[in-house]
Nucleic acid binder design. Structure first.
Length: 111
DNA sequence: GCCATGGCTAGTA
DNA sequence: GCCATGGCTAGTA
């Protein structure tokens, strides 16, 4: 596994339950702001084997953008279980639930 | 070649 | 809705 991918995997694992992050946000944290699609690629192909919390990643707009309908539904379910509301079955309020790496401790739904 | 993006704009209401 | 974007897995030979 290459450097960049390694960092992406590490960062993905750090996204706390009860929050979400965007593809671009992970790419930026991993050092390449333009590599959002890489994050998608990593999630698609490596989530299973690496135990990545794939359901906590949404688009910059807060939308569930996964293509597969069944997986999209599973993502919604998992988010709901963690206390993250999914509006109209599609969108998370990023204002409130977006992961703030400097503020890991308290889950948004408790603030 | 693949991938689960993002950001900006034109065009509508 | 359009289009520029980039690192590289999984699976085969």
């Amino acid at each position: 596994m290459e450097d960049f991918t390694e960092r992406v995997v590490t960062i993905l694992k750090e996204v706390p339950a009860g929050t979400v992050a965007s593809y671009g946000q992970i790419a930026r944290l991993a050092g390449n702001p333009r590599a959002a699609r890489q994050v998608a690629r990593v999630l698609h192909s490596m989530s299973r084997k690496h135990g990545i919390p794939w359901h906590r990643i949404v688009s910059a707009k807060g939308e569930i953008v996964i293509r597969n309908g069944e997986a999209a539904f599973e993502q919604e379910e998992r988010l709901l279980e963690e206390g993250v509301p999914v509006i109209a079955g599609k969108r998370v309020d990023m204002e409130r639930y977006k992961w703030d790496p400097g503020n890991d401790e308290l889950p948004p739904h408790t603030r």
